[in-house]
């Protein structure tokens, strides 16, 4: 097992509110890591630290370090743009661009000045196929992405990330706005993507974490209470707090 991202002694605050207290975690390549915990425990904040999505808030402050393949993500000389391309993200609410299905997938390439129609066509098709969306949309690539269903939009967002050849995909509660059928499709897709991508998924749904992840981290009040193999966390956790949470005693 190869480690790909390593967070050490992460302390994060927004203004005077401390959100993460001394979190250290190692994420493995081509595995699915689930992050669970009650609302407000800092799990989304942690995820968003990994590709520096919190940078857009003025009062965001981070101490400690995150390394991606050995490079410090928060170093001054880090190319944030290139880093974000390699660590992609899928959000809670599907957020396609208000343009066509085709342009949604092509956007990530266009901003790298790749405008060759042949290359774009190829990447769009390959990405949509990988995201299990191709068959549903191949006849209407020019249609507005906003007319797709919620589940289709979310798969389009995944295709968009695949198109720029991300190595890691961060999922921030990707199914919380979807119905059970769509959720199922996304879960199957995530399991399929595991072959080539490292996946980190924040979820409220403990069954989801149990079903799809290899590793699980349990956050509580800004601390990583326990981290380990999913089976271990759900069946034989060391900490009482973890046992109570996965049993559904609080949350």
């Amino acid at each position: 097992m190869q480690k790909i991202i390593e967070a050490s002694n992460l302390r994060v605050s927004f203004g005077k509110t401390q959100v993460l207290k001394n979190v250290s975690m190692t994420l493995h390549k081509d595995k699915i890591t689930a992050i669970i915990g009650p609302s407000g425990c800092g799990k989304s904040t942690f995820l968003r630290c990994l590709n520096r999505m919190n940078d857009m808030y003025d009062n965001f402050k981070l101490e400690g370090a995150i390394s991606f393949k050995g490079d410090n993500v928060y170093a001054k000389e880090t190319d944030v743009i290139e880093m974000r391309r390699r660590i992609g993200m899928v959000f809670q609410k599907p957020n396609p661009f208000p343009s066509s299905i085709y342009e949604n997938v092509a956007f990530g390439l266009r901003i790298q000045n790749i405008n060759d129609k042949k290359i774009l066509d190829e990447v769009v098709e390959r990405s949509l196929k990988k995201a299990a969306l191709w068959d549903e949309v191949k006849d209407r690539l020019g249609n507005s992405a906003l007319r797709l269903s919620g589940g289709q939009q979310q798969r389009l967002c995944i295709a968009r990330t695949i198109a720029v050849e991300s190595e890691v995909i961060l999922f921030d509660e990707p199914c919380s706005a979807l119905d059970p059928t769509s959720t199922r499709k996304i879960e199957d897709l995530i399991l399929e993507l595991k072959k080539h991508y490292t996946i980190i998924i924040v979820t409220h749904n403990m069954h989801q974490a149990k079903r799809i992840s290899d590793f699980t981290g349990f956050f509580h009040l800004g601390e990583l209470v326990e981290f380990g193999e999913t089976k271990k966390i759900f069946e034989d956790a060391k900490e009482k707090l973890t046992r109570d949470y996965v049993r559904g005693d609080f949350g």
Partner: peptide, 22 residues
Amino acid sequence: PVSLREASFALGATKWQTLKYQ
């Protein structure tokens, strides 16, 4: 919506690209 910015940034767009295209 903030989500539009986030979508663009998460794909590796610069601030100016995000502004100009989205």
